[in-house]
Design a protein around this nucleic acid. Sequence first.
DNA 1: GTCAGGTCGTTCAACGTTGTAATGTGCCTT
DNA 2: AAGGCACATTACAACGTTGAACGACCTGAC
Lengths: 343, 343
Amino acid sequence: MGRTGQRVAITMHDVAKLAGVSIKTVSNVINDYPYLRAETRQRVLDAIDKLGYQPNLSARGLRSGRTGVISLIIPDLRNAYFAELADSVMRAAASDGLAVLIQQVGGLRAAELEALHGPRMTNVDGILYSVLALDDNDVDQLDIPTPLVLLGERIFNGPTDHVTMHNIEGVKAATEHLLSLGRRRLLAFGAHPGEVIGSAGLRLTGYRQALDDAGIPFDPRRVVNVGNWHRSDGAAAMREFLAKGVEFDGVVAFNDSIALGAMRVMQEAGIRIPADVAVIGFDDIDETRYTLPTLSTISPGMEEIATVAVRFLRERIERGARAIPPREYLANFSVIQRESSAL
Amino acid sequence: MGRTGQRVAITMHDVAKLAGVSIKTVSNVINDYPYLRAETRQRVLDAIDKLGYQPNLSARGLRSGRTGVISLIIPDLRNAYFAELADSVMRAAASDGLAVLIQQVGGLRAAELEALHGPRMTNVDGILYSVLALDDNDVDQLDIPTPLVLLGERIFNGPTDHVTMHNIEGVKAATEHLLSLGRRRLLAFGAHPGEVIGSAGLRLTGYRQALDDAGIPFDPRRVVNVGNWHRSDGAAAMREFLAKGVEFDGVVAFNDSIALGAMRVMQEAGIRIPADVAVIGFDDIDETRYTLPTLSTISPGMEEIATVAVRFLRERIERGARAIPPREYLANFSVIQRESSAL
DNA sequence: GTCAGGTCGTTCAACGTTGTAATGTGCCTT
DNA sequence: AAGGCACATTACAACGTTGAACGACCTGAC
């Protein structure tokens, strides 16, 4: 195999010679071409077995234009939500025989663009892109030849499929859940100032809708900004908020990680959960089942999102990147009540 | 691009024509061939820019035998330890310009073998393999033409590099730490019956060595088996153990996840941590900093492991899979004391 | 004035596979 | 008996790139 001469791999030629057929017949066997005598097929399979032949995927990729690999662009695997998303996507892809190349872009604009436009995109059949840095103004950046399916809340009405969750309705239901417990002074925890679209913007809208519907006045002092959505950011934001002395009896956190960070800080401060403050998060990541107290949350239907996203992408790969008009899919969510919002 | 005619990509030919040079010169520009007039190089770069040319990685991979992709074989991204490992590996690889193809094998023997021997291995420059299902008896399965570096505790003395952590010494230090607090009735939490090598076997050895050195008799009743090492397994094992009524005042858990599951169950049962029972885990996953109480643990030097593993692999890729005799590397560990074992 | 050696660019073939089209077979139909 | 059709296999070229080798030009040294 090139360069230094080491690694001389077995090719179709070797198999063909051993089986006494043409190289194309070997190819036909591998690709399940129907018109093959059973005896010929068997002879080829035996030769493949004997030599331990494995098709060269680079060559196949070059010739056929298909690599059997899709890429998944996400900010960061250290974030439990994305680790779980990656897991779900990989399992959905595996059942279609697709491998997944994960590209961590850390929420950096340049890195996201590179993943979309860089050379690696020539090497994958399609891209699953969980948008974080780009927004609606960058829609033309999505006009690439590779089949593409969007995830996340940053871009709606893009030129291609978009699979996402009920952000507004989910947080609205979360808020209503805390209201139903009699809590009235709820924090919106995780806002991004000025953001309208995007997870933070949409989720804040859900919070406000629930308050409006219940006839409870909106109090901007109870909107807490949290820049990133890791545990440590939630902890820091809560620490700062407590220092202000604004009263509250419930927290609607915009994701689980910041809810857990905040919970930890509240407990340090002697606040009892749920007795003093009820908490609900968003995402239903695994660890919410094992914290003390366990965390109520919104399950956004991640498995469904992963399955549908891979299916949409596979359809675009098979029928052509532009052959299908853009689709929008919203997964079903559900409210999971646990100890942090028990009666 | 093949099949259906859509996606006609720009190739070196187009660039060459526009720049008025041969296609090989374009290749030379891209590959930083030194003997190029600055003016020629610029002309080519301009043409590349103008056309938006991106090299076809399948073709490059076929011709040169290098794809710029390494694969990382791990059991499961839902396990925080492996998600963090994957993150560290990907960042280390990215700084070498390598992409990472993660293969989740769920600890299944067949899946691990497929990842090692299947066709995908023809498509990657090297493999980072975190062994879980195979063991010392399978060493000959590792005799593959692709450069390979092993992680994990299942296979020592394999035919290739092995990068791992101080399991015995780490748990020994963890045990000594609890002993230094005056605790004497320590659980070894996470054993696998009969296992000698492998994380569970080695870590149990560390626990016993610490007891021996301190002259404390080993009590087999305080060895708790935990089949898998997810939070839920730790929770279930602790629930079962508490039912037995065996007294204890410390828990040496063989990883953080089961420590957290166990901690949660103990707290439900009214056990105060660390007042009644001190707890220490292993791995130093992110969430141990945010639980209540925060979890003391052994930091196994994961960043170092990832960096060294990628470096070893890169060296094997560059110099040939067999050109380097097997190396063994053990990362430095440290004891991280947090609230769960505070005085 | 010649030659060695560095500089700059080119030609050619090959990596291993699959799409297209063609070539055989045999059997059934008319 | 000739044509038609389903089956079975093959020859050939091409996918886009890079390694090997070579040629032409220039500079400086003797």
